[in-house]
Structures are given as structure tokens and as C-alpha cells.
Nucleic acid binder design. Structure first.
Lengths: 250, 250
DNA sequence: CCATGTCTTCTTGCATACATGAAACCTATG
DNA sequence: CATAGGTTTCATGTATGCAAGAAGACATGG
């Protein structure tokens, strides 16, 4: 869904499948944050040698998903709270840039995709189908970034989202109804601004949306909601689990 | 100069030297764009095996400096003109973000570094020492990005600059005097906006500066200047050399 | 019971050997 | 002379072996 722009970004070697599988293993699979991932285990699991595993792990390292402690091992890395804030700041800037660029492009295919997405999102919002809505949010943002027609931006965004482990966030996302509604409205505003071809307006509307969404995602960490009193009081510490399941984004 | 923020970004293995050396070999060294880089050659040159060389090459690939054609070889990659434009768009956005963040931080160490830089730049500009000025431009931008106090932004910026092969640009940069002067003035405006703690103003002042600088850098490609009529007429084609020596940035 | 020093084990880091595939080259033929 | 086919060469992709280092366990002495 995010591998094909028009042609393949780079003619990477055939391990693209392996790398993707390993990514899944780490983000969704049974490897949780802090866990050690022995190369040999993965190697015999995927039926290959340690060499390609090592290469993939190195790539995952500089994507920020794992941490390789030399001579010790490779561990699943959980972004610190600070890193998440930093990534959201970047996300806001990049998606703002994307919205502006898309607005400048005029009526392109991606814009129509966004409009269709809006209709589907309205329906999902009306029905309160937060699962479907989460999927549509995903598609909305990726479509927008793709529509910017800037491959370097796209790659940077991809890397960013991988680091955020956005999958983990989105999958566990069952947004609160009021935020869902607000999100839907904001999406409408964004598309409206893009359609009006006002690049600056589009950029800032998007940035406001991303900021709101990020803050909504971070809030459960900042101040545990009364409805869910449980067990979140020890942030402040770095390298502490940020309880990804609590993150929402839309 | 750009490896140390406070602590080392990631405890990478000891090949950081090797990787850096290879980067130099490619950006400065005897490997020009399009050249094949046999792993074995590098291996025996650095006195190591092919394995660490391969790892470094893979990293250089996803930094965009080389292209690995599977089963064929690793080639020095020259960014296409389009990619350079894309990278400059990103650069503008990222440095704008950095300026805004720095403005919000108030009076920090980096701000004083910028002010000192301004004084030195004024002197270099007055003396017409474009070489020294180029160095100071370099420091100016890196200091600003570092001053944003956002490590993810810093890493993204670093990756971006590596892809741009900014070294190649800056080293060969002997900016035209009028652009040098304009650049110096813009730097002043930027620092002024940052000091006034107006984040939005700082962001846009910076963005305007980066845009101006980028356009100045791209102009020699767009329209060969009458003073240097030579040999630049075949852009439009992708994968064509962009004649990095012609790029200026300030 | 606690602390300290040693040892074992596990994991990575690097080197090397071999297989595979692609590109270039050489030759033979129309 | 040009072209098609086959062969050779070269560079990568992968597997495996070996060594070095770190973390934890265990035993021993205070």
C-alpha cells in the first residue's frame, strides 16, 4: 500500500519481502519492546542464513525500530516519549508541506481519492465504525503525502512513520467519538483548502489538523483520563514504555 | 562537526569510521557519479573483508549516495535534477521548522553561536572571502538545526544533506558577490526573528532564505549564465549529471 | 547472609568459500 | 559487415566457521 508510487523507489534487492516480514514480526508480532532478537532465531525461522538477517536488522536499526548493542544483541526499541513528541513535530511539518504542494498541483488523481475518502469517512463516522475510520485515516494521510508528488518527502515520511510504529498506534486505535468527529471535520477543511489551491491555507489547515491529532494521541500519556485510571503515571523517565496501546491518532 | 549532539545518536558499531571514510571516498574521492564500486576493491583497500563493506554500502544506499543494482554492482549515484528540487523543498520545510523551534526556545547557547557566526560572516563578506563564508554558512545552518533541540529533525536533516552531497556543493561554492551579500543579510533577518521569539516569523524568514538560496543554487542549471556558457544544456533527461560543481548555496 | 571473583554460555563481528546471475566479449554465420 | 548465439568473466548474494566480548550464573571467601 505504501511501497508503490509509480515505479519502485529503489531497485532494492529481493530481501524487500524479508525486511517487510521482519518489520511485521517486530511491530505486530511477538517481539515486544525491550525484547532481545537473536539473529539465529530469525535466521532459522525464515529459513535463511544470518547474513541477510543481519543486513535487515541493520536497516531496521537506522530506521529506529531496533537497537543494536554491539557484541550484545539486537533489541526491540520503544521510542521514548520525547522522541514521539519530536516525531510528531516532524510529522506536522512534513504533512503541512505535502498539503501545500498538493494544493499547488491542482486537480490531480490523488485529490479525487481524497474526496472519495471523505465520503467513506463520513459514512464510517456516522456509523461510529472506528475501525473502518482508522483505516481511512491511514489512507487519507498516505494519499495526501503521495499526492505531493515529491518522492524524497514520501520516503522521509515513510521512515518517520516506521519509527513511530504508526501501525501499532493505528491498529490499537479506537478513537473517542468526539475526536473522531472532529478529525472528520478537519479532513474536510483540509481538502477544501487544497481544492481552493491556496497552498498556504492548505499547509496550515493540515498542520492544525496534525497538531490536534498528535495532541489527542499524546493526551492519554500526559494526563490519564478518569475513565481509564489504570497504571499510567511513570512517564518522565526516558526509556520507559510509553504504552503504545494508549495512543490514538486520527 | 555533525556527529556529536550531546551523546552519540546511536551506539553504532565501530564501523562509523569506516562508513565515514567510504562516504568521503565517494563524495570527494576518486569515485565519480556513475562509477562502479566493486566491494572487493574497497575491501582490500581498507584492509577488511567484504562483509563490513557491504553493510556500509547498504547504509550508503538508503542514504541515497549509491545505487545497488542487484547482482550487478554498486554505483555512485548522482541525484537527478528533480531529486535536487525535491530535496530543496524538504530542506526549506525542515529548516523552517528548526527556526521556529529555536525561536520558541528563547535564549540558548546555539543562539549565541549564531550571533558570533553573524559577526564572522559580516567580516568574511566584507573581505569577500567566499571560502570562509561558505564554511560559515555551513556552520550557520547546522547550528540552527541543532538549536531546534529535536534529534529526529536533526537526523532527518543530516540524511537529507548527505543525499544532496552538500559537501560537493559547498566545497565548490564560490558564490557570486551579490548573492553572498544577500545571504548575509538574510541570515541577519533570520537571527533577528529568532531573537524576537516570534516562531512563525522565524519560520518564514528562514524559509524565504532557504528558498532564495536554493533558487540561486539551481539557477546555473536552469539558465546557464552568459559568463559561463559552457556545456550545460542537457538537463530534462533523468539520470543525467547535474554538474554539481555548478551548484552554489548560501 | 552478602560480596566478589571467575567461569560458562550466548550473541555478535568478521572472514572466507561457494553458488548464482548478469553483462560483456568473442566467434561464427547470413 | 552486421548480427545472433554461446561462452567467459566478474561481481554480487548467501552460507558457514571461527574468534572476541559481554552478561549472567555460580561458587567461594569474609
Amino acid at each position: 500500500m505504501q511501497e508503490d508510487m509509480d515505479t519502485v523507489p529503489q531497485s532494492r534487492s529481493g530481501d524487500i519481502t524479508l525486511l517487510e516480514k521482519m518489520r511485521r514480526q517486530i511491530t505486530n508480532g511477538r517481539y515486544g519492546p525491550g525484547d532481545l532478537i537473536p539473529e539465529l532465531t530469525l535466521a532459522e525461522e525464515f529459513g535463511v542464513s544470518r547474513t541477510p538477517i543481519r543486513e535487515a536488522l541493520k536497516q531496521l536499526q537506522n530506521e529506529g525500530l531496533v537497537e543494536i548493542r554491539p557484541r550484545v544483541g539486537t533489541f526491540v526499541r520503544q521510542p521514548t516519549r520525547r522522541e514521539i513528541v519530536e516525531l510528531f513535530e516532524l510529522k506536522e511539518s512534513l504533512e503541512g508541506l505535502a498539503a501545500g504542494l498538493l494544493a499547488r498541483r491542482g486537480r490531480v488523481r490523488e485529490l479525487e481519492t481524497l474526496e472519495r475518502n471523505l465520503m467513506d469517512s463520513d459514512r464510517a463516522a456516522a456509523e461510529g465504525d472506528s475501525q473502518a475510520y482508522a483505516e481511512l485515516v491511514h489512507e487519507f494521510h498516505w494519499t495526501l503525502v503521495r499526492g505531493a508528488d515529491n518522492r524524497k518527502l514520501y520516503e522521509t515520511y515513510e521512515r518517520l512513520m516506521n519509527q513511530l510504529a504508526y501501525h501499532r498506534i493505528v491498529v490499537n486505535t479506537v478513537a473517542r467519538p468526539e475526536r473522531l468527529k472532529a478529525s472528520d471535520n478537519e479532513h474536510h477543511s483540509v481538502v477544501e483548502a487544497i481544492k481552493s489551491k491556496d497552498a498556504l491555507d492548505a499547509e496550515f489547515t493540515m498542520r492544525n489538523h496534525v497538531r490536534a491529532s498528535s495532541q489527542a494521541a499524546l493526551r492519554p500519556i500526559d494526563e490519564p483520563q478518569p475513565a481509564r485510571p489504570g497504571s499510567i503515571d511513570d512517564d518522565a523517565q526516558e526509556n520507559r514504555r510509553v504504552e503504545g496501546g494508549e495512543l490514538r491518532a486520527c
